[in-house]
Structure formats: structure tokens, C-alpha cells
């Protein structure tokens, strides 16, 4: 049972995460309404969907920039660094855990601690979404907002069509990520543990998983934002 809780999600990241989640849902719903517009069964009326998508897209850009600046100035970028060496092996271990170990009740191979918020699969997917899919969807979205900036003809195909295909494809990938991300809320110490973490900022960990327990000397290098609080075991 987890007997310690560490402060992993400061206010700035929880604020960004919440707003990002709301905007994503609005963007996906309005995007689907436009892409699969149907006069008989409109999910959201087309003109409203256009307005909703445009406003949400602009806000998403603002909050993405906020996220970038925040991770730079809070030195949170370290959590997103992918170790090139043995990363494939780490991914394999994590995949094995999610496909076999999790059912047996094994301990996660890369438990959360003060220095490691994300396991290798989270690291890979968050980086792909945050630094590839989101920037691409933002850039193509702004281009579609100002279509006069797009080349008319790209090797015989409409530039707007290709931009839109990229935009919609990235939107789809982000939607799939969102579904899996939502499911992974339940993959914590308890079904609601992860949800509580992102609301309160505190993540429940086992004492032996913490950095202090593993490498006591590295306590001095802890991020100043990462406060640790010992929690009394319930039993």
C-alpha cells in the first residue's frame, strides 16, 4: 500500500492541464461536428461549431505557449527528457508490465518518484503529443484560420486539402490519446488514485520507490517545487 505522498503537480500544471482538457474536448466535439457535418443530425450546429473551434483553438495556442514557458522557467523539462540509451528496453519493460504484470499484481518497473513523473510509455506518448501532435495541429489550425497563407497548389493537390488532412489526422491521434489517457486514470494504486493526484497535486507512492529511499544522497538535488510529505499508513 502507498505510505507516502509527494507533491508532483504544482498549481501551474494543474491549471494548464484542466484548461487543456476542457479545450481538447470542445475542439474534438466541434471538429467532429464540422468534419462529419450532417444537415439532419448535427452534433453542434455548423456555424456554432466553427466559432467554438476557432475560439478554443486560439485559447489552446495561448495555453500551449504558457505550458512551454512554464516548463522552461520551472525547470520541469527534465521530466520530459527521454534517455536515448536503453529507452527501447525501458519501453519493452513497461509494455510487458501493462500487458502481463499489471494483471499479476506486479510492481510497476518505473514507479513514480520525485525525479520521475512519467514511465517510459508516458514519456514517449506525452512527448509525441505535446511536442509533435499539438504543435502540428496548432500550426495547421492557424493556417486554416488564415487560408490565404497556404500554398494553393502543392504538387497538383490543393494546399488547403493537405493542410486539412494533416490537421484532422493530428486531431484524430490526439483524440485516441485522450481516450487512452482517460482510461489510464484508473491504472493507479486505486481506481481513483490518479484522478485525486491531478486534482490535489499529491501523488501516492510507496516509501521504497521514493528517491530518498533509493539514493539518499540525491535528496540535496531535489527540485525546490517537489515537497515531500510522509503519510501515515492507514493500517
Amino acid at each position: 500500500m502507498p505510505n507516502k505522498r509527494i507533491y508532483l503537480y504544482p498549481v501551474w500544471i494543474r491549471l494548464w492541464h484542466t484548461i487543456n482538457a476542457i479545450l481538447m474536448v470542445l475542439l474534438i466535439l466541434s471538429g467532429l461536428s464540422m468534419q462529419y457535418s450532417n444537415p439532419d443530425y448535427p452534433l453542434i450546429r455548423f456555424d456554432l461549431a466553427v466559432k467554438m473551434h476557432n475560439i478554443s483553438g486560439i485559447l489552446l495556442t495561448v495555453f500551449f505557449l504558457y505550458f512551454l514557458l512554464a516548463i522552461i522557467f520551472n525547470w520541469a523539462g527534465k521530466y520530459y527528457r527521454m534517455p536515448l540509451k536503453e529507452f527501447g528496453d525501458h519501453i519493452f519493460k513497461q509494455v510487458k508490465y501493462y500487458t502481463v504484470g499489471i494483471f499479476r499484481g506486479d510492481k510497476p518497473p518505473f514507479p513514480v518518484n520525485e525525479q520521475r513523473k512519467f514511465n517510459p510509455i508516458q514519456l514517449l506518448s506525452y512527448n509525441a503529443i505535446q511536442f509533435l501532435a499539438i504543435p502540428l495541429v496548432i500550426i495547421t489550425g492557424w493556417a486554416l484560420l488564415f487560408p490565404e497563407t497556404i500554398v494553393l497548389d502543392f504538387f497538383g493537390y490543393s494546399g488547403i486539402l493537405l493542410t486539412s488532412l494533416l490537421h484532422v489526422s493530428m486531431g484524430f491521434i490526439i483524440s485516441i490519446f485522450l481516450i487512452i489517457h482517460l482510461y489510464f486514470i484508473t491504472v493507479g494504486h486505486s481506481v481513483t488514485a490518479n484522478l485525486k493526484s491531478i486534482v490535489t497535486g499529491y501523488h501516492e507512492v510507496e516509501e521504497e520507490d521514493t528517491l530518498a529511499a533509493r539514493t539518499p544522497e540525491s535528496n540535496t538535488t531535489l527540485d525546490k517545487n517537489n515537497k515531500t510529505h510522509t503519510k501515515n499508513p492507514k493500517t
Binding site: S37, S158, S164, I176
Partner: peptide, 30 residues
Amino acid sequence: TNEAYIIGANRNYYLNVISIVIFILVIIGI
């Protein structure tokens, strides 16, 4: 498709099928 793009009117059949299949597989997998 070579000369214009109209949101909601231009849809690629194969991309539609692929995206629906991926979506269903993800839901089944979960």
C-alpha cells in the same frame, strides 16, 4: 480535391474506415 477543400464535404473514404477501425480497436482493447 485538386482545386479546393470544403470542410465537411471532402472526406476520404479510406481514412474514414481506418479511423473508425482504430477507434473501435482502442475501445475494445481498453
